Computed example of a mutant assay.
Amino acid sequence: MPNDALHPAWLICLGVGSAAALAALLIRLSLPLLRRYALARPNARSSHTTPTPQGAGIAVVAATLLVAGGLIWLQAPAALATLLPVFAAALLLAAIGAIDDIAPLSVTPRLIAQAVAVAAMVWALPDGLRIAPFLPEWLERAGLLVGTLWFVNLVNFMDGLDWITVAEVVPVTGALAALGLIGTLSWPDAVLAAALGGACLGFAPVNRPVARVFLGDVGSLPIGLLLAWCLIELAAQSWAAALLLPLYYLMDATLTLLRRLAKREAVWQSHRSHFYQRATTNKFTVMQVVSEVFVLNLGLAALAIGAALSHSPIIEAGLLALGVAAVAVVLTRFSRPRR
């Protein structure tokens, strides 16, 4: 950063506050249009029982990109150039999500568009970035493409309950911003994470159970992509930290997919078999579910910061194992009827 630039701590604070305010304003302005054109009607996957507008994610994404892009450009225009392909990929996913929110798309064109966006994001990664140096670079990048495509979709799958995305994204982005302050993550990525977390805070009041508006695919898909970018950058420094931060989403969505595949179910169809959805069937209230997820994610964030600071593969592995055990406890609770 230039010598006269703001300290990253100030940039992060500005990112959170500005994105929260801008997202809240944009949501308020867009609500009449969303009520008219983007009503989410209850289906087999839904946790709501009445038609509710969706698509507030467009305000979250717009606030994130505008605030993060503006702050990064003001401090170091060259740093923004690296992120422009990522921003373009996020906007492509937002456009596909918006179309899908209004008139559902079939699986094939949706996946093709997602793959194009993810490929653009992977292409934008720094040339020297390596997570698994024991693999050929082309194979590692192919793995990142497939993994990011899955991550983008699992964030979308997990966005099926009021406040659950807020309970996930706010602790994750908070930890990413903290890691930026201690130098584990680059300051532009930390500012991007801070703006994303702030925008989700701006969305939180209207998504509080019972929600007045949902994110929609227009929000969940690009949020998944932006998180994936930051986590891949973090993984180059600490693979355990990058796994710990989204571990609840990773385990819930992946175990659910494997269970459905084992039962030979059509995995592309709507369902209510995620652990957080089963929890509401098992007499957990929505607030109980999202509260447990939020507290769990705070714990995972603490473990991730500890792993990043340790610089010890043994300690990182131990903290990751502890995180897996904590998530397993919560998933087990969600899968059993509550007394």
Rank of each mutant, 00 (worst) to 15 (best):
P51L: 00
L84W: 15
R272H: 14
R272A: 15
F87S: 03
L161I: 10
V327I: 03
S106I: 03
P53D: 05
A194C: 05
L192K: 09
G318P: 12
L34S: 10
A62M: 01
G299H: 04
L125C: 03
V290C: 04
L154T: 11
P337A: 02
V206W: 15
A190I: 07
Q277W: 02
A178Y: 13
I131V: 06
S270K: 15
A199I: 01
A132Q: 05
A235N: 07
A38S: 14
S270L: 03
L176Q: 09
P2M: 08
A78L: 11
G55C: 05
A279F: 03
I305A: 06
L319M: 15
Y249M: 04
L105F: 14
L257Q: 09
D159P: 00
N207M: 06
S220A: 11
P2Y: 10
V67W: 07
G299K: 05
R28N: 12
A56C: 07
A63I: 04
G219R: 01
I58D: 06
L196A: 05
A142T: 06
A117V: 06
T50F: 05
R141V: 07
W150A: 01
L80G: 04
T50V: 15
S47M: 14
P188Q: 00
L11R: 01
A119V: 12
T281P: 07
V122H: 09
R36P: 03
L255A: 11
R339Y: 14
G180E: 11
A326K: 08
G69H: 04
S291Y: 04
V118Q: 05
E292A: 12
R45A: 01
A23Q: 12
W138F: 14
G128A: 01
L226G: 02
A81S: 12
P53C: 05
V286I: 12
A194W: 08
R41N: 10
G57A: 00
A79V: 03
A279Y: 13
V146I: 13
L154W: 13
A76D: 09
Q237T: 12
L247Q: 01
V116M: 07
V118G: 04
L25F: 12
P8I: 00
F284D: 00
A113S: 14
G15W: 07
V295N: 04
G17E: 05
T184C: 15
Y249K: 01
A301V: 06
A307S: 05
A302G: 03
L320P: 11
A325G: 09
A193K: 10
Q75G: 00
P209Y: 08
L6G: 03
V122Y: 13
A113M: 09
A113P: 11
V210N: 09
W10L: 14
R339T: 14
V61E: 01
A177Q: 03
L255P: 08
H274N: 11
D4H: 15
G143W: 07
A124R: 07
R41P: 01
K283R: 10
P77C: 03
P136R: 08
R278M: 12
A235G: 08
A81N: 10
V118R: 03
W138E: 11
L245V: 09
M121I: 00
I314N: 13
G147Q: 01
N282Q: 14
D189S: 15
I223C: 07
F134L: 08
V118E: 02
C230P: 00
P126Y: 07
G219Y: 02
V324N: 06
A235W: 09
S46N: 08
G143R: 00
L322A: 15
G306H: 11
P109Y: 06
T49P: 13
S30H: 13
C13Y: 10
Q54N: 11
